[in-house]
Design a protein around this nucleic acid. Structure first.
Lengths: 218, 218
DNA sequence: AAATAAATTTAGACTAATCTAAAAATAGAT
DNA sequence: ATCTATTTTTAGATTAGTCTAAATTTATTT
């Protein structure tokens, strides 16, 4: 059995270490988890005993494949719940993190599979971060800022960089939402504004907007 | 701050004591929570210190109004989540308890209000038990077995007594679901079967079925 | 009303997760 | 290469929740 606290440490090591590929230092974990380094050392030892991390004294921790599976699972749940909150419960993109932090620990395979289905198998959360699949794999995402797209390019809106409510309101007003298809109609060199098409409708957006919207190019 | 464990004790006392109206004994709580009586004594003392229960040595515990509010809130969340699982995630009525047991501890007022709205403000969970409102009040329910309705009476299906998958499949097949409007067309004295109407369609059901379906008479 | 049974509480110990303070190891600078 | 600063670990203590075993109170029976 794995405890909630262990799950949180494993998730943290996963995220600090670029999806489990890098070794993470004790202090780094301590800061992320808001605990003292001594507590982290204790926990790393326990995780090593249980086979979730590789650990040598003074050398930081690296997730084992077993640890990575656990972490990917928690992150998958976290991000699916975030999509749920935004898509089904009218949350805005910056309100969801703390609640997803709680929901990510609910244990039920069926629950998460059905949630995935209800949301129509999303690949990214509202911040534009990729959602690991059932096997824990992350599709290498080509998420970019809308700003970087060339004329005639198409993309799907997957997230925001600026999560201020002013920006979110702006998006709402112009019917730009998670999953919206966006086509770049033209770019204006003078002020870096661009004309984009959403659901057949062209609108002009400023550089400020284009550089705060994440899209996946198609 | 209230811990998860404290919440579980308070909920248990609420349910064993008929929505917080009766005093509950240490042993009763111990059995319900699968802990030893000595652990329960310790916890009751703590809950008394914090003002959630009234307690006199050897005399069991009674919820204070503060305790009742906490309990009603947890039960409200539990039952709303159960409705969500059945209505939105294709769970059957007997699979939801354990997951709701986890979900009931998620803390977010907005979450639960939005969930309530998404589900269209249900008054009963899939087992036919009433859902406390935001203020913790429970509408005194006139939930009865379909079996007890007289000819021409109408009701809304609110739950099942038998939660076997065989029965649930039977209901599915005959399009009897949570919230279905049911009208009693006629009763047959000989074998206690009855003809009922669901969405304009008459079907004949046996006494076995009628005595396992809860309805609220209108 | 005394004796016995059942329920409840106390006392003391254990585990998980945390902390502080001191010791040890590593890394960086001269 | 040595000294110093930083990082990490160890040692010992603390809190929440639990347990067992023994003691106490209440309830029941004769």
């Amino acid at each position: 059995m794995i405890t909630l606290t262990e799950e949180n440490y494993i998730k943290t090591i996963y995220q600090l270490g670029k999806y489990g590929t890098l070794t993470v230092s004790t202090n780094n974990i301590a800061e992320a988890i808001a605990a003292k380094a001594s507590s982290v050392t204790d926990m790393i030892k326990k995780l090593a005993d249980k086979g979730y991390v590789d650990y040598k004294r003074y050398q930081g921790a690296t997730l084992t494949s077993k640890g990575k599976k656990i972490a990917a699972d928690v992150v998958r749940k976290h991000r699916l719940w975030e999509v749920f909150l935004v898509e089904k419960l009218n949350f805005s993109w910056d309100e969801v993190h703390d609640i997803a932090e709680q929901l990510e620990h609910i244990k039920s395979d069926k629950l998460i599979n059905e949630l995935d289905k209800l949301l129509d198998y999303p690949t990214h959360d509202p911040h534009g971060d990729p959602i690991p699949d059932k096997r824990g794999e992350i599709k290498k995402s080509n998420k970019v800022l809308l700003f970087t797209l060339t004329e005639k390019a198409k993309g799907v809106c997957v997230g925001v960089k600026d999560t201020s409510s002013a920006f979110l309101k702006y998006l709402d007003k112009h019917k730009i939402a998670l999953g919206s298809e966006i086509r770049v109609v033209s770019r204006e060199d003078y002020d870096d504004s661009m004309v984009i098409e959403i659901k057949g409708k062209p609108i002009t957006i400023s550089q400020a907007v284009a550089s705060n919207l994440f899209v996946i190019e198609e």
